[in-house]
Amino acid sequence: MRSKTDSREKILNVAAMLFQLKGYNATGLNEILKVSGSPKGSLYYYFPNGKEELALEAIHLASTSIQARLQIVLDKYPNPIEAIQNLIKNIMEDFKKESKPIGFSISLIALETYLSSQPLREACSESFTDLQTMYVKKLVQSGIEKEIAKELGTFIQIIIEGAITVSLTHRSDEIFLTVSNQIKILLTPYLNNKI
Rank of each mutant, 00 (worst) to 15 (best):
S3T: 14
K4M: 03
T5Y: 10
K10G: 02
I11W: 08
L12F: 09
N13W: 01
N13F: 01
V14F: 08
F19L: 15
L21G: 04
K22P: 00
K22R: 09
N25H: 13
N25Y: 13
A26F: 05
L29A: 04
N30V: 03
E31Q: 03
I32K: 12
I32M: 08
K34R: 10
S36W: 03
S38D: 09
G41T: 15
L43S: 10
L43I: 15
Y44G: 00
P48G: 09
P48R: 14
N49P: 01
G50L: 04
E52H: 04
L56H: 03
E57T: 09
A58R: 11
A58Y: 05
H60A: 05
L61K: 13
L61F: 05
A62P: 07
I66W: 06
I66E: 08
A68E: 13
L70C: 02
K76T: 10
P80E: 09
P80K: 10
I81S: 06
N86G: 03
L87V: 11
K89C: 01
K89R: 13
N90E: 12
I91N: 07
K97Q: 14
K97Y: 10
K97P: 05
P101I: 08
F104Q: 11
S107M: 07
A110F: 06
E112N: 03
E112P: 00
E112Y: 01
E112V: 00
S116L: 11
S117V: 11
P119A: 08
P119S: 11
E122L: 14
E122K: 15
S125E: 12
D130H: 07
L131H: 13
Q132F: 01
Y135M: 07
Q141R: 10
K146D: 01
K146C: 00
I148Q: 13
K150P: 00
E151P: 00
G153R: 14
G153D: 11
F155K: 14
I158R: 13
I158D: 08
I159F: 11
I159C: 13
E161V: 06
A163V: 05
S172N: 14
E174N: 12
N181R: 14
Q182P: 00
I185K: 14
L186Y: 15
T188I: 04
N192F: 08
N192L: 13
N192P: 00
N193V: 04
K194N: 07
K194V: 02
